[in-house]
Design a protein around this nucleic acid. Structure first.
Length: 285
DNA sequence: TACACACCTTTC
DNA sequence: AAAGGTGTGT
């Protein structure tokens, strides 16, 4: 275990926002401490006085990479406001929200295979079920290759119990972890085409993998929450209430064309805007 | 190309 | 009915 102190301003990094904005699923908050995992690494993070005290199997460089502290939120903010000044209120509201740089493309990919047509209360135990197959950290693809559909169905995975083993087998056949790493080097749209060959990976899941695992910050996954926020914000989408393959393509192209290399970051703010509106509606009916 | 519909299970 | 959609059919 490493123990270290990391300094950052609240506007630059909000640990809680990053870990509760649908990017990663094996984290929880208890008594002022964020406990959780990023691939093979375990973290205990105590936010305190302009920074955080960290205990982790990862070193400080690993922490800084995970939270993308090598990138400047001020530059991101300036670029977004140059393109769309009306974003200011949303950027302020969720200041410190960042796109994570997860260390395990395998964990990220397998996690998002659990998300289609699903909700968090069910996704989290599914990801934990798969994580438990690993001896140290999240299992490698080779370890996951032994997981059977019947086992996953019995664990409540539903029809994803079929697609997950199929996708894992195909990944292993393509070269496993090394194949995923190679996708980082090439072009975003080429990696996207590759990912969409996998069973259970459509446009949305592919965009999540590109953004959260493969470091393509121009990728803009459009889920039901992002879609709803876009219908609020942009006249062009206000009369289009349904997210389907056609509207997905339109919304995805819109964010990529408008925001370019920061489209993925913007998408994260839109996601939280819609999500928190939901929570408020539920909390006070 | 464009739509409809099934798919597991749970219910922020 | 809807949910951090995808695959298959017409």
């Amino acid at each position: 275990m490493n123990a270290y102190r990391v300094e950052f301003s609240p506007e630059d990094l909000d640990i809680g926002l990053c870990l509760t904005s649908g990017q990663i699923f094996r984290w929880n908050y208890l008594d002022g401490v964020w406990n959780g995992f990023d691939g093979a690494y375990r973290y205990e993070i105590r936010p305190r006085d302009g920074g955080a005290d960290v205990m982790s199997t990862a070193d400080e460089a690993g922490f800084r990479s995970f939270f993308r502290l090598d990138q400047d939120t001020a530059a991101f903010r300036a670029e977004v406001l140059r393109i769309e000044p009306e974003m200011e209120q949303l950027l302020d509201r969720f200041a410190g929200l960042r796109v994570l740089r997860t260390s395990s493309a395998t964990e990220l990919l397998v996690s998002f295979l659990c998300t289609p047509n699903n909700h968090l209360a069910r996704i989290v135990p599914m990801v934990e079920f798969l994580a438990a197959k690993g001896s140290t950290g999240f299992p490698a693809l080779a370890e996951l290759a032994g997981v059977e559909e019947s086992q996953l169905r019995a664990a409540g995975f539903g029809y994803r119990g079929a697609t997950i083993p199929a996708a894992i087998r195909q990944l292993v056949a393509c070269g496993g972890e090394a194949y995923l790493e190679d996708l980082k080097v090439g072009r975003c749209d080429e990696a996207r085409q590759e990912l969409m060959q996998l069973p259970g990976v459509g446009a949305k899941v592919a965009d999540c993998i590109l953004l959260f695992a493969l470091d393509f910050l121009e990728a803009a996954p459009i889920d039901t929450h992002v879609w709803r926020a876009m219908t609020w914000r942009y006249e062009a989408f206000s009369a289009a209430p349904k997210l389907d393959p056609r509207t997905y393509k339109l919304a995805n192209a819109f964010l990529r064309d408008r925001f370019g290399p920061v489209a993925g970051w913007v998408q994260q703010f839109l996601f939280l805007e819609s999500l928190t509106a939901n929570r408020r509606k539920v909390d006070s009916p």
